[in-house]
Amino acid sequence: MDILVTNQLKKYYGSGDTVVKALDGVDLSIKNGEFAVIVGTSGSGKSTLLHMLGGLDTPTSGTVLVDGKDISKMKKDELTIFRRRKIGFVFQNYNLLPYMNVYENMVLPIKLDGVEPDQNYISEILQIIGLSDKIHAMPGQLSGGQQQRVALARALAAKPAIILADEPTGNLDSRTSMDVLGLIKVSSERFGQTVVMITHNDEIAQMAGRIIRIEDGRCQPGTHTAEDEKCRPNRLHPDGPGTHTAEDEKCRQKQAVPDGIRPAEGEVEKA
């Protein structure tokens, strides 16, 4: 079942000769529980697409269906409530509230819904992200990686059906990136969440069940074959992120990965 569907989604900025087509008729559908990454060059429209999917921005035309509901027709506050219940958004620059501590940042969306947070679940998330001892810390006291993990924890805390992440590892070192990514995978598998993530990192892109390529505001034809699909289970290797078996490696070799996102040979060797 498709949980995210876009039909002829367009987002234009400006008008006349100066019009910028950030999205120019994107048709896309993402299945429930799918782990998809959006790749594309800078300015290709990745972030705009993600914002549209999350109802953070309004399209010039076209529709966005989330779980069957056309969010482009919703009123502002209706959309906000829908978003806080259905969608967890992870920003590249974290967007944590600087005056709130880790715990308060995490539980804010839940409390806004008038519900008391599930403390056990919160504790579990904190344990997974490794910040149990930082619960009272303010964002300013955390490193970039820790802040990103808090941002992710906030997106997960309300147990949303969909997690949209805009380059969540863009500001992190490779080790922290893998930690964060692992957390997203574990959470999405455990709670059957759909994940759509923007990344520039080839290795991360390869871990996804599906790669959506955007160029000039349009979705490019899919890059996965059925065999690839079989080769690439929608999960990370049980031994952890970045770990590959020899079979995985074979599959990888077969994949027609564009040069731009092909992993470096050395990296594979190391793995």
């Binding site: 906000t80 409530i81 806080r84 219940r85 958004f89 944590l96 509230l97 005056y99 804010l108 819904d113």
Partner: peptide
Amino acid sequence: LEFAVLESIGMTV
């Protein structure tokens, strides 16, 4: 920024 963030995580106008 704070208002925008709050709105993005579910605080209504």
